[in-house]
């Protein structure tokens, strides 16, 4: 990896994180903060888009895929949110936020990869 690609991908990761912050606030305004729908939908759309980018731009996709979409989606917040829901007694919601996100995220990746391969 060249230094330029590394720097571009890092900057794209910063833009992805800022996009996540804005989208999360927007979704919380619509859906409330009882369930972390923001990170849930961000991770599903990001997984779909990474599948699409991986299938259509195998090499040039690094800046968008590993950079932007890597920074856009997040794992750490999803885990902390699941623990917080569990401790609040929201156990089905906690379980859905982990297992549902994982299964739907993988299916979204399959959908992105399949669509990308068909293009």
């Amino acid at each position: 990896m060249s230094v330029l690609v590394f720097v571009l991908a890092a900057a794209a990761g910063g833009a992805g994180a800022a996009a996540r912050y804005a989208v999360d606030i927007g979704i919380a305004r619509l859906a409330g903060r009882r369930f972390p729908w923001g990170v849930f939908l961000i991770n599903l759309t990001g997984s779909f888009l990474l599948g699409l980018v991986t299938a259509t731009l195998p090499d040039a996709g690094f800046v968008i895929g590993t950079g932007f979409l890597g920074g856009y989606t997040t794992f750490s917040t999803a885990m902390i949110d699941a623990v917080a829901l569990w401790r609040d007694g929201e156990r089905p919601a906690s379980f859905f936020s982990c297992a549902g996100m994982l299964i739907l995220g993988i299916l979204a990746a399959v959908a992105g990869l399949t669509l990308g391969a068909a293009l």
Binding site: G13, G14, G16, A17, R20, Y21, N43, G46, S47, L49, L50, G51, T54, G65, T66, L69, G70, G71, Y72, T73, T74, F75, S76, T77, A78, M101, G105, I106, A108, A109, V110, G112, L113
Partner: peptide, 23 residues
């Protein structure tokens, strides 16, 4: 918290690569 949590650790960890890597 925004700099280190939402930004740094949010960007360090990733979900899309976990989903596509699994497939």
């Amino acid at each position: 918290r925004l700099l280190l949590g939402t930004g740094l650790l949010g960007g360090f960890t990733t979900y899309s690569a976990l989903a596509v890597g699994t497939v």
